[in-house]
């Protein structure tokens, strides 16, 4: 049975997914959830595919009402989550009964929260992704009264004893705080900055209020390019650190223009891009140099942790009868047949 949810207070929220991976070859940024770990975790906790459409709630209070019984999960920046007035836990599956209001208030420590609904929500797609693209003017930005169709309804699951937390899923939650250490690898153009490149590792940077999904702007001592030869436009990766002006360091995030003509000093690792997605204006950033193999190992460790979470969630949900389509299980042919 499908249902819907109705947005009562949108704050600053959109429907997104992990990104438009086919976009860059057509000149469109990848976009998608800025904190990929939290977005994947929310979907996994709601027994969805990692890339299923979900809600990204940035900075401001959010409220919605369910028209059917739902199962949701909220991850990302710490906030106060209430369902029908009861305070609920982030980073675990939460039952919502038809008619109840879900409120995500007082986002603190970080900037972005993710709300996944079991069965996901319907959203239009462009090049195989529902991720909003502000330049093309595509995507589902939520406003008061927006009705989102949901895939599946789930009856309430409730711990009968004292409303103790129902699940012990053992996921290590990311840390959120006002000081972040960001891992970077040397960029392809690091030599153009000469000795000044070292400033990146010895300076405390402050996140500017002009930061957004396209890039974070950081104030502090700036490495300086030693040559002034014109650079032809070329593809720049998400995470590229550039020094386009004398005022700020620019760290490109998932909404970045695919091509640019500035030298790339360093590149933020995949894991640290999630951390940067949660940095608020005024937060302090320091950079730490790492290598591509180490960054890859950290990324894979995080993916393994999410896979473990998925297997625990699917065991529990199978016992509770959630997420199974009615029908015959696939039979393994008998040996020798």
């Amino acid at each position: 049975m499908s249902g819907s949810l109705i947005i009562q207070q949108p704050g600053n929220s959109v429907v997104t997914d992990l990104g438009r991976f086919r976009g860059p070859r057509f000149g469109l940024p990848v976009n998608g959830a800025l904190d990929q770990f939290s977005a994947r975790a929310a979907n996994i906790l709601a027994a969805n595919a990692d890339n299923a459409p979900l809600l990204e709630i940035t900075a401001l209070d959010f409220r919605m009402q369910a028209t059917t019984d739902l199962l949701i999960a909220v991850t990302g920046a710490p906030l106060t989550l209430t369902v029908g007035g009861r305070e609920c836990q982030q980073w675990e599956p939460v039952s919502v009964r038809a008619g109840e209001t879900v409120a995500a208030r007082r986002i603190t420590g970080g900037l972005r929260a993710y709300l996944a609904v079991h069965g996901s929500v319907e959203a239009p797609e462009l090049l195989g992704s529902c991720a909003p693209d502000t330049v093309v003017g595509f995507g589902l930005r939520l406003s008061e009264g927006t009705e989102l169709k949901t895939g599946r309804s789930v009856g309430p699951i409730r711990q009968p004893y004292f409303d103790l937390p129902l699940f012990r899923l053992g996921l290590t939650r990311p840390e959120f705080g006002s000081r972040a250490v960001i891992d970077v690898t040397d960029g392809p153009d690091v030599e153009e900055f000469g000795d000044t490149a070292e400033l990146l590792y010895t300076t405390e940077y402050t996140v500017s209020a002009r930061s957004n999904h396209i890039g974070l702007r950081l104030g502090g001592a700036l490495p300086e390019r030693q040559s002034s030869a014109e650079v032809l436009s070329r593809g720049v990766p998400v995470g590229a650190i550039e020094v386009p002006s004398r005022e700020e360091l620019l760290v490109l995030h998932r909404g970045r223009g695919v091509t640019a003509g500035y030298p790339v000093l360093a590149v933020v690792t995949s894991r640290s891009l999630d951390t940067l997605a949660q940095a608020r204006p005024g937060h302090t950033i320091t950079f730490r140099k790492t290598t591509v193999p180490e960054a890859t190992a950290k990324h894979r460790a995080a993916i393994r942790e999410l896979e473990n979470l998925r297997s625990r969630v699917s065991t529990i949900f199978a016992l509770l009868g959630i997420g199974k389509e009615p029908g015959w299980p696939e039979l393994i042919p008998a040996a020798g047949s």
Partner: peptide, 22 residues
């Protein structure tokens, strides 16, 4: 491998480090 972005003299090849590696 997600795809490739060619410009004038360069090409950016993007990939998922969880599946493949540099």
């Amino acid at each position: 491998v997600h795809g490739a972005v060619p410009t004038y003299d360069s090409l950016l090849v993007e990939f998922d480090p969880g599946v493949t590696s540099a």
